[in-house]
Design a protein around this nucleic acid. Structure first.
Lengths: 260, 260
DNA sequence: AAAATAGGTTCGTATATACGAACTGCAGAA
DNA sequence: TTCTGCAGTTCGTATATACGAACCTATTTT
């Protein structure tokens, strides 16, 4: 249990608290947070006090903590920095307007899909995905597209504990996942059949910058609205959008090195 | 310069740094941040180190700090907590699909409009507003709707230094602002003519929960697409959406006391 | 009504953090 | 090539934070 000696305990605690509350809003009191993090109340008290005074946290009537608007504003700067996102949004909106299904733009973080943009279908049934959420990449078409250049050893490193099912259809076998990835490399797209969300099928294509997969886009189709014609339209839209987005990304200021 | 003795210095520093970097991504080095906050390098160094290790910050090739994805995820929990936002999104999408103009949902924070949801117009010209951003309330139709129940003394408290212009058209006179608010109370809507963004006109209506204005919705129209017919359609859509959203908000779990 | 529980607050001292100063290493100027 | 400036890193000690324990207050249980 080596500890990096440059790590700052107070800062770690602040971040632990923020992440804990974010993961479970309105679930914990000061006392709960102390017992979860094995810290004395008198130590976390001034931290929570400050976080609340600064509107990073707020406290509800049952003394449970929630994330407040200052945290939201800080976090949103992450999206603001992605100055190409406006263009991506237009392209997603255009796709959704044509096929009337929900579209997404996402990137890979650790082994998870991080949703960066979503355009909802105007139709009544939609996905329950949320911008800002993370889902294990292996369980979604978006994720498979993001993993398109991975080989078995990369996958094993990413998922050392194997693949946990999200639905009865989730692929939990690394061999099958890799096989799908190999096929996808030839076809240029990935798909998913109720592997992350029941009643939802999904198509996705990777977005490359300087050859490397840095993001992906997808369209989700409820199974009761699914047809081969629609799937074909969706794939065409995705390929088209992919080209547009890639040309935007490759023209973007080179300084965005760490961003995507 | 009284200091609240419960305030925790380390936590304040962490939050100062996050807000500073969020306000100006890729602008500051460690040394910059130290000089801005009047702190020694050796003090902020472990904080920045930890923030970076935890992916709240990231550092670009010129040693400038930016917000990273962990901050984004924490901040997004704020929106996730607003469990009625999905419904609001559907209603906004519906409005935008009918009038083909950009719609917004926002709330008031201090004297600022905090944008919570935006549905972009499918047309090519759009507003430059951003979800997560804040604009002074007096300069936008959304803000005026949010201020609809304010009187002169409330406004003076909110803007002790008066009103600063965002565009040549911004209202900078509190008397005129109050007059517009009074008129709006009778008409039920507010408007704005290039007061926050050039070439954009805007209509907004307040959303009430238990009688109190807690949010507002708006539709923005580029002036070259403006007509009295369109304005009339937009107002009708807003009134209709207002009723739908209010019935959702009033049926929401009562525990969301602090949220909106 | 008393007791118990649970959330939060305060306090004095042990201890970990903060600070200034000195150092490294790199990039551009002289 | 040397010099200068700038970003970041390290170190020993002064000092502010952290901790356990005790306290307050409101609500629930007995």
């Amino acid at each position: 249990m080596e500890q990096d000696k440059n790590i700052h305990r107070s800062t770690s605690r602040v971040l632990d608290i923020l992440e804990l509350v974010a993961a479970n809003p309105s679930a914990y009191t000061l006392t709960d947070i102390c017992s979860i993090t094995n810290s004395p109340k008198s130590s976390l008290y001034p931290i929570l006090y400050t976080l609340t005074a600064r509107h990073f946290l707020t406290i509800d009537s049952n003394a449970h903590y929630r994330i407040d608007y200052s945290a939201y504003q800080v976090g949103n700067a992450y999206l603001t920095q992605l100055n190409f996102l406006d263009e991506v949004e237009k392209i997603l909106t255009n796709m959704t307007n044509i096929c009337l299904e929900t579209s997404h733009f996402a990137t890979l973080v650790d082994g998870d899909v991080l949703y960066l943009k979503k355009i909802d279908s105007p139709e009544f049934i939609r996905m329950t995905s949320r911008v800002g959420n993370r889902l294990p990449a292996y369980g979604t078409s978006l994720g498979k597209a993001l993993l398109m250049d991975y080989e078995m050893n990369d996958l094993k490193k990413l998922y050392p504990n194997g693949l946990k099912a999200l639905t009865p259809n989730t692929i939990t076998d690394l061999e099958i996942l890799l096989e799908q990835i190999h096929t996808a490399r030839i076809q240029g797209f990935t798909y998913e059949i109720e592997e992350s969300t029941q009643y939802i099928r999904c198509y996705a294509v990777p977005i490359r910058k300087n050859g490397r997969v840095t993001a992906a886009i997808s369209i989700a189709i409820p199974i009761f609205r699914f047809s081969e014609d629609k799937a074909s339209l969706v794939r065409t839209l995705l390929f088209d959008a992919k080209n547009k987005i890639e040309s935007i990304l490759n023209n973007v200021d080179t300084d965005i090195n760490g961003l995507l």
